[in-house]
Design a binder for these strands. Structure first.
Length: 376
RNA sequence: CGCUGUCUAAUGGAACCU
């Protein structure tokens, strides 16, 4: 049973829902762990209606079942639903409280995050770190630091969180100071520091960090690639790409964007052609590379080749039409798209504004507020 | 009897608008 559950979990973590489902159906017996693993697999895919139905069908549930469902709701942006479940739970533990805390924080709702934290029966270092991040992400560095100082057992994640608190708030001096004091450095610590230097334009320092790293993963390589891209050194950026052990979508999109933003569309095309497996994210990156350079025809061609058109690709097409003065086409996309983010709304508003339709832009702005779309 | 393994919460890189 344990091995069956391991297989099930492995599929779930790869996002392979079909195989996970097969495994679940084929195993000789299922225990609560199997049900929970299956629930998580469905929910992580964002199929929240299915997840809820599965949850309701479960013969018995434990805290993990509840926590899994609640975390998934909040991670998929349905914080209100997560909150409803949270308040109806038979009992609560630190896991779901921490998940709610993070959800509130990401909505900018620091009050509720604080409330959840202080109502917790036992605060552990994970929940405290989540609170630290909540303060930091909403701009309260000193409060974050206070939480940090009060955590008795700090692990690498705690230290990394404080490091990010400083770098995200552009306090490089404090970040450096903290970095030097850290008892242990992992990939995240190094990469955080590297990106901080990159953001401030300290290319040499970033490179020095990169060279000092005892080991590097794809994230570190991509961060270094991005560093060179940001300062317009495309050759070094490409060199990094060619030397990284394994390419992934993020590395490739970073390189494509770098080419597109500096008028090297041919290079972008060339790199794109070299990739065998073109996934929707990569296609979207190439599409917007064309759009940045005003090539609506090629952008459309990529767009129509895609079998899954993500919201990001729709947004890109919308603003491409707007740039060409075709407000009607932009509006058509806006109306027909089945999912909108804040970016969609802003893109449509500026489509109106850039083409002189100020009244429509204002109307849309009011409509957006009534839909409770919040800007980051 | 004890221990170990399988499910849920905290930190780093990219593409769409401003």
């Amino acid at each position: 049973l344990v091995s069956w559950n391991s297989i099930l979990t492995a599929f779930a973590q790869n996002g392979n829902l079909i195989d996970a489902q097969d495994t679940f159906n084929q195993m000789p017996e299922q225990d609560l762990i199997s049900w929970n693993a299956m629930l998580t697999a469905i929910a992580q895919k964002g199929k929240m209606e299915d997840a809820k139905r599965f949850f309701d069908e479960m013969a018995c549930r434990n805290l993990v079942s509840w926590n899994s469902l609640i975390s998934s709701f909040s991670q998929n942006g349905h914080v209100a639903e997560a909150k409803r479940l949270y308040e109806n739970m038979p009992e609560r533990d630190q896991v779901c409280a921490t998940a709610m805390l993070t959800a509130y924080s990401q909505l900018g709702n620091l009050r509720d995050a604080e409330a959840v934290f202080s109502e917790m029966q036992f605060q552990n270092s994970i929940s405290a770190t989540a609170m630290l991040n909540a303060y930091a992400q909403n701009g309260y560095i000193q409060e974050a630091r206070n939480v940090f100082d009060q955590i008795p057992q700090k692990n690498v994640i705690t230290w990394n969180s404080m490091l990010t608190a400083y770098t995200e708030n552009e306090n490089l001096t404090e970040a450096e100071c903290l970095f030097d004091k850290m008892p242990e450095l992992d990939l995240v610590s190094w990469t955080t520091m590297l990106s901080a230097y990159a953001q401030e334009g300290h290319i040499q320092k970033a490179k020095r960090i990169f060279d000092k790293m005892p080991e590097k993963d794809r994230v570190a390589w991509t961060a270094m690639l991005r560093t060179y891209a940001l300062c317009g050194n495309l050759e070094y950026a490409r060199w990094i790409l060619e030397n990284m052990p394994e390419w992934d979508t993020v590395a490739l999109t970073t390189m494509l964007a770098a080419y597109a933003q500096s008028d090297h569309l041919e290079q972008a095309e060339c790199l794109y052609a070299r990739v065998d497996e073109k996934n929707p994210v990569l296609q979207t990156a190439m599409l917007s590379a064309y759009n940045i350079n005003g090539n609506l025809i090629e952008a459309k061609s990529v767009f129509y080749q895609m079998d899954q058109r993500s919201m990001v690709s729709w947004n890109s097409m919308l603003s491409a039409y707007a740039q060409h003065g075709n407000v009607e086409a932009a509006k058509r996309i806006f109306d027909e798209v089945h999912e909108r983010s804040a970016v969609t709304w802003i893109a449509m508003m500026s489509a109106y504004a850039q083409n002189g339709h100020f009244r429509e832009a204002l109307f849309l702005f009011r409509e957006m507020n009534s839909f409770q779309i919040f800007l980051d």
